[in-house]
């Protein structure tokens, strides 16, 4: 074989070997254990921070509200549907026995009309909805920006919770 071909082939051989070495060094440890991916990625995806506690954790302290809610039409609503994610609240609330929680731990109280309207605003897509879980009732719908908007006496805008107890509407 002529000299220049030998040079060329060794040049390519060196490149190839370098590539293979690099490859060995760079391939992540758990790659290929379960398939063509890093198996560790599954556990890494599992270690993220949680935000929603689950209603079982709420009833541990707020037992009475749970009982109250259980008798009304909102019985299948979990607490966090309206009050937002409460894991931090459930974890740290009992550290403040006097009941004065810092603002960061307080949960949202949905008292605005638009918040009730998320579910109860009249909408053509809601009219035919039946709930076999709650005695085949239709969801109550109103026009949230009209329905008893103003207080008859004071003529001021009134909130839904003025008349409706959200835990037992």
């Amino acid at each position: 074989m002529p000299q220049h071909l030998k040079r060329l082939i060794s040049f390519f051989a060196i490149l190839l070997i370098l590539f293979l070495i690099m490859r060995q060094v760079l391939i992540p440890k758990s790659f290929g254990q379960l398939g063509h991916y890093r198996a560790d990625a599954i556990s890494e995806n599992q270690v993220r921070e949680l935000h929603y506690a689950g209603s079982e954790n709420c009833t541990k302290c707020h037992d009475s509200i749970h009982i109250e809610k259980d008798e009304g039409y909102h019985k299948q609503l979990k607490c966090e549907v309206c009050h937002g994610p409460g894991l931090k609240h459930t974890q740290y609330a009992d550290k403040f026995k006097d009941g004065h929680l810092p603002d960061s731990l307080l949960l949202h109280k949905p008292i605005e009309r638009k918040e009730c309207a998320l579910c109860h605003q009249k909408n053509a897509a809601r009219t035919k909805i039946l709930f076999d879980t709650i005695d085949n009732t239709m969801i109550v719908q109103i026009d949230a920006m009209k329905h008893k908007l103003l207080n008859k006496k004071t003529k001021e805008e009134q909130k839904c919770i003025k008349c409706h107890n959200p835990h037992q509407p």
């Binding site: 002529p2 000299q3 220049h4 040079r7 060329l8 040049f11």
Partner: peptide, 10 residues
């Protein structure tokens, strides 16, 4: 690649 062969054969 520091080759030098420029013979007609090469």
């Amino acid at each position: 690649l520091w080759t030098t062969d420029i013979s007609p054969k090469a």
